[in-house]
Every structure is written in C-alpha cells, then in structure tokens.
Amino acid sequence: MSIQHFRVALIPFFAAFCLPVFAHPETLVKVKDAEDQLGARVGYIELDLNSGKILESFRPEERFPMMSTFKVLLCGAVLSRVDAGQEQLGRRIHYSQNDLVEYSPVTEKHLTDGMTVRELCSAAITMSDNTAANLLLTTIGGPKELTAFLHNMGDHVTRLDRWEPELNEAIPNDERDTTMPAAMATTLRKLLTGELLTLASRQQLIDWMEADKVAGPLLRSALPAGWFIADKSGAGERGSRGIIAALGPDGKPSRIVVIYTTGSQATMDERNRQIAEIGASLIKHW
C-alpha cells in the first residue's frame, strides 16, 4: 500500500482519535458579512469528516447552483462504474471539434489522439474542462443518470439537468442544476469515506481534487503551510461562485467545507476574496 493510499485508508482512524471539535460562531459572522459585502445569498456548511456531524452552517438547506462543483460527483459516478466493471479508466475516447464547448483548455489539445477516461476526469476536476465533463456525462448516460446515481446514494436534493455550459445559467428560483450545502457536503463525505467506492477509487477521487489547479484564489489562499486540501470550485452566471473541499491540518483532511453564493453584482475577484476570507476565519478558529 502506498503512503497516499495509507493516508486515505486511515482518515477515519486518525479522526477518531482527534480531540473533540467545537464550532466557532466567528466564522458564521464572516459568512454573514460576506453576504453584506456581496449583496447576495451565501450558503455555508462545515462537517466533521469522521462523524458527519454538522459543526457550523448557514442557509444549509437553500438551493444554490452547483456550477462546476458537480464534476466531482460526476467522476465519482464514473469511478463507481469502474468498480462495477462497467468502465475502464484506460479506455480512450475520441471526439471532434464539434464536441468542444466553451472553456476546454485540455480537451482542445487532444482532438487528434483523444483522451482516456482517467485523463478526462483529471481534466474535468483539476482544470474544470467543460468538454471533458460533457464527454464523461455521455459515458454514464447524461445528466439524468448522474441525478439517479445521487438518488441511489441517498441524495434526493442534488440534481443535474443540463450539460456544460448551460448548467451554469443560475436563474433565480430555478431548481435545475442545483444542490443544497448540506446535501453536497453529505454526498461528498460519502464519496470520500464511505463504502460506495473502493479504496482505490476513493484515493483516485481525492487525488484529482488535491491536484486542483484553478481554485488557488479561494480556500487555498488562506491555508497555512502543512495543511491538506482537496477541492473543486465552480463559477456561473449572475454572480455565482462555489467551492467544495476536504481539508485539515497535519497533512490530512478532517472536515468537509461547502460554500456557495449566487445573485451578486460583485466582480469575480471580490467573490473570490470573500470566500478566501471565510476560509481564513475557519482556519483561525479551527
């Protein structure tokens, strides 16, 4: 067993022997301040990774656009098919120029040779490549099948209805392509620590998230040296922004954090800054 596999296998073990965790309302004060600064709703939840206990939450059962955070769930569904012998990570998928959609920095470079399922998941999570996500959605049967996968996990809230990039439209009061912070946090925890996926697939999923290259201005910008984070960000229309993450000190994750916002007129930089400040408060009061 590799060191990384050992780390993920012992996530519940280490967490069980940690000192009790206590909620700190100071972080919620910052979440509410972010709402004021952005002029928009902000949803927040913080779960203990081992027990699933909610440590703090704000608007945990209000719907927010998922945006690209759905790509972690998508690759979880792909990995479940791999575990069941219905898919192979090494299978190569070929596609054409007509398949390319807006923001496809990886797939646009491989029109000639195609990409493997493993490479597509890596591109979808680490670079948020939209064509990679659409190609992977095709392998599982489309958005409705991802929703069905989530329902089978016990998540009857999260739903995907459309493809990239239309799913980022974020129309107010439109339930399409949305989740709730509580539902997303619980589902992410199941994917990373539950028995739904094999140990190898859980490790692969967290490795992809740990290698995320496009979430630097968010929670990662607030992390002290030595902290662990595996995350996936999302951005959408109407001032929408979000991030889902597993993080913790001492090089291992111990909490799940989900943050979503929508309806702001603020710039992307300002949305990023507010999420980073929430992260800084979380870490300060850990």
Rank of each mutant, 00 (worst) to 15 (best):
T116L: 11
L205Y: 02
S104V: 14
K30S: 06
L167D: 01
K71R: 00
T112Y: 15
F70R: 00
P143C: 13
V101L: 08
G154N: 12
E102C: 06
L111D: 13
L100V: 07
D33S: 04
G154V: 04
Y103F: 06
L73P: 10
C75M: 08
E145P: 07
S122L: 11
S264H: 04
P217R: 10
I125L: 07
L28P: 05
H24Y: 09
M180P: 04
E166G: 13
N152L: 14
P105D: 05
L55F: 05
I275K: 01
S51K: 03
R159C: 11
R255W: 01
M268H: 10
D250E: 03
N134G: 05
L205A: 05
P217E: 14
V117Y: 15
L218K: 02
G226L: 04
E145A: 05
N130Y: 01
K144D: 05
Q265L: 10
N98P: 08
I125W: 01
K109W: 14
D33H: 06
E35W: 02
S80V: 08
P60M: 11
R202F: 14
V258F: 02
W286Q: 03
H24I: 07
T116E: 13
G141K: 15
P253K: 04
L89E: 05
H94D: 05
E169A: 11
E145C: 08
M67Q: 07
E195K: 05
P249M: 07
Q204A: 04
I125T: 08
S233Y: 01
E210I: 15
V117Q: 05
S281M: 12
V29S: 15
R118T: 12
N272Y: 02
L49R: 10
E166V: 12
I243Y: 06
L136I: 09
L136P: 01
R92W: 14
T261E: 11
P25C: 03
P181E: 00
L28G: 07
Q97M: 13
V157T: 09
E87L: 10
G239Y: 02
A183I: 08
I283F: 15
L55A: 10
R59N: 09
A133T: 06
A133Y: 01
G141D: 04
D269H: 14
G85I: 05
R273K: 07
E87S: 08
A185V: 13
A235E: 03
Y95P: 07
E237T: 13
M184P: 00
H94A: 06
K53I: 12
K144Y: 05
S264T: 05
G216Y: 11
H285Y: 04
T186L: 11
L247P: 01
T147K: 03
A225S: 13
L28Q: 09
L150A: 13
N152W: 08
L89C: 06
R273E: 07
V31E: 00
A280P: 02
L205F: 04
Q204M: 08
R59A: 10
I206Q: 04
L196Y: 11
R162G: 09
E46M: 10
A266L: 05
P65W: 01
K284Y: 13
T107C: 15
G236D: 05
T138W: 14
S51M: 10
E164W: 00
G43Y: 00
N173Y: 13
L219E: 10
I171S: 15
A235F: 02
N50I: 10
R241P: 01
K32S: 06
A124R: 01
L219T: 04
L111W: 11
K30A: 05
E62W: 03
L191G: 02
I244S: 12
Y44N: 00
P25K: 13
G236E: 04
H285I: 06
E102I: 09
Q97H: 06
G141N: 03
T107I: 14
R159D: 03
T187K: 02
L282E: 13
L188M: 12
K213F: 06
D207W: 11
R238E: 06
S104H: 03
T198I: 11
A34P: 03
V82Y: 09
G234M: 14
G216N: 04
E61P: 01
W286K: 03
F64C: 02
L150F: 13
N173G: 07
H24K: 09
R202H: 08
D155A: 02
A183F: 14
F58M: 11
L218N: 04
A123R: 02
A266T: 07
S128Q: 01
G194H: 13
I259Q: 00
D269R: 11
P172A: 11
Y260K: 00
S80F: 13
E56S: 05
P217K: 13
E35S: 10
R220L: 04
Q274I: 09
E62R: 05
M67N: 15
P25M: 14
S57G: 06
K190T: 11
D99I: 04
T186V: 12
H156P: 11
Y95M: 12
W208V: 03
I54T: 12
G85R: 09
M184Y: 11
R189I: 09
T261L: 11
Q86C: 03
L197N: 03
R63W: 10
G279Q: 03
E102H: 05
T107Q: 02
I283Q: 07
D177T: 00
H285M: 12
K252A: 10
R41K: 12
Q274N: 11
L205R: 00
G242R: 01
A235S: 07
R238H: 14
L192C: 06
H156K: 14
D212S: 09
E169I: 08
D155E: 10
H156A: 10
G279E: 03
S68Y: 00
K252I: 12
L196D: 12
A84I: 14
T27D: 08
E277F: 06
L219H: 06
L196M: 10
H156Q: 11
S254Q: 10
D177A: 01
M184H: 02
W208K: 01
G85S: 07
L199D: 04
E26M: 15
R238F: 15
L196C: 13
E164M: 00
D129A: 00
P143R: 04
F228T: 11
M115H: 03
S80M: 13
S104P: 02
Q88V: 11
S57I: 08
S96W: 08
A77N: 06
V106P: 02
V31G: 02
L219V: 05
L74M: 11
I283H: 14
W163C: 11
I259T: 06
N152M: 12
K109V: 11
E169T: 08
V82N: 10
R271G: 13
L188W: 12
P60F: 08
C75Y: 00
D207G: 10
A280Q: 04
S281E: 10
A170H: 14
S104W: 02
E237Q: 14
M115G: 03
W227S: 02
Q86P: 07
A123L: 04
D99T: 05
